[in-house]
Design a protein around this nucleic acid. Structure first.
Lengths: 197, 197
DNA sequence: TCGACAACTTACTAACTAGTAAGTAACGTC
DNA sequence: GACGTTACTTACTAGTTAGTAAGTTGTCGA
């Protein structure tokens, strides 16, 4: 039985990929429908307006982020950081996708208000989490870096976001360089980490 | 007398702003025409296709970058770096614009091939320049940082790009934090720099 | 077995998109 | 002073966009 959430979830999965590849204004209901073999009206049935779809999309990323954070809570700072990096690395490896918050921020003034609001909340939440990891990580001696933790959080988040975008042009090794350097900048020698491909 | 380049230049100026605010797929010939009080066909007269306009746009940024680089050549690394940061700061201050390369990278798979090519060349050129500044800056003792200069270049460029985007949501101070932290990460105490607003 | 509801499709619209073809007005030049 | 060239406007097209209204089909509970 095709449950209620079946098509809805497929729409969100497809739209997520299209968002991360083409941007919010780079895909249409038509693209989604064609790819799933359904009609555009079916997409409108689940998400009446594109703003609705956008908000659902952002909230889906947000929920997944939150679940992951809860899961990683309590782990050593380096492991939490490694997981955060890995999320971005997976996007890079799966078709050169970019950070969903990044692409939406880039075209922020061309997306619906409600989407803007949702992005804002998600970004705030991730920044808060990152700040916490850096603060406690430095207190525990796991991490060591210059300057205030909130400034370091900005550099880390912005680097990952920008690196995903630039790696599209300069190639995947750029992301590796960014990640390796971030480890050094928080006082962890990349070579000392568990094997990472 | 309205010279040939008059309208053409106005179109490029307007399109640049729209690109940095809304993204390549976030503005149309109609938007440009309306803003300048001309017809869309006039825009097509100067730039037959949107790909042409996109390439001209990127090359305009590229030329300005190059002129600035030539101008700054020979200056101390810290001053060259300060100028590079200032370019981004100016975008942030002038309406929360983002890096043109950044926004085009974010929607890269939804922009014409020729534009992609142009972006690629510009980005490569800036990265080469930045790598050179970091390399010579460290050799001269002006800068000091861990890891290879090319990895540090990636972090710096990506941070500025990402910070401009995130500052749209989290506010201008985020950009200040990013810049201050970048200075620390290259071994320069932000307080030691000449007054910057 | 009879609704009622969920999950669609069919068929449509109005607005916007990039792009084109043909006309026009001003200007310099020979 | 006719002639080409530049820089447009007028008028149009074909395709795409988000969005809607009305119908269709299957399922499930009373």
């Amino acid at each position: 039985m095709a449950t209620k959430t079946d098509t809805r979830e497929e729409i969100l999965r497809t739209a997520s990929r299209l968002l991360q590849l083409n941007g919010f204004n780079g895909f249409s209901y038509g693209h989604i429908a064609k790819e799933l073999g359904i009609k555009t009206a079916a997409v409108h049935y689940h998400f009446p307006s594109k703003a609705d779809l956008g908000v659902a999309l952002v909230n889906r990323f947000r929920t997944r982020y939150r679940l992951w954070m809860e899961d990683a809570a309590g782990l050593p700072a380096t492991e939490q950081l490694a997981g955060y990096f890995a999320i971005h690395r997976r996007w890079q490896e799966r078709g050169s996708r970019v950070c969903p918050a990044g692409v939406l921020q880039a075209e922020l003034f061309a997306v619906p208000d409600e989407v803007r609001q949702a992005v804002s909340e998600m970004v705030q939440e991730v920044y808060d989490w990152l700040l916490d990891v850096l603060t406690t990580g430095r207190e525990s001696g796991e991490l060591s870096f210059a300057g205030p933790p909130d400034a370091m959080a900005v550099v880390i988040a912005a680097t990952l976001q920008g690196a995903l975008q630039s790696a599209r042009i300069l190639g995947p090794p750029l992301f590796d360089q960014a990640e390796g350097q971030l480890w050094r900048l928080v006082g962890v020698e990349p070579e000392s980490l568990p094997i990472r491909k």
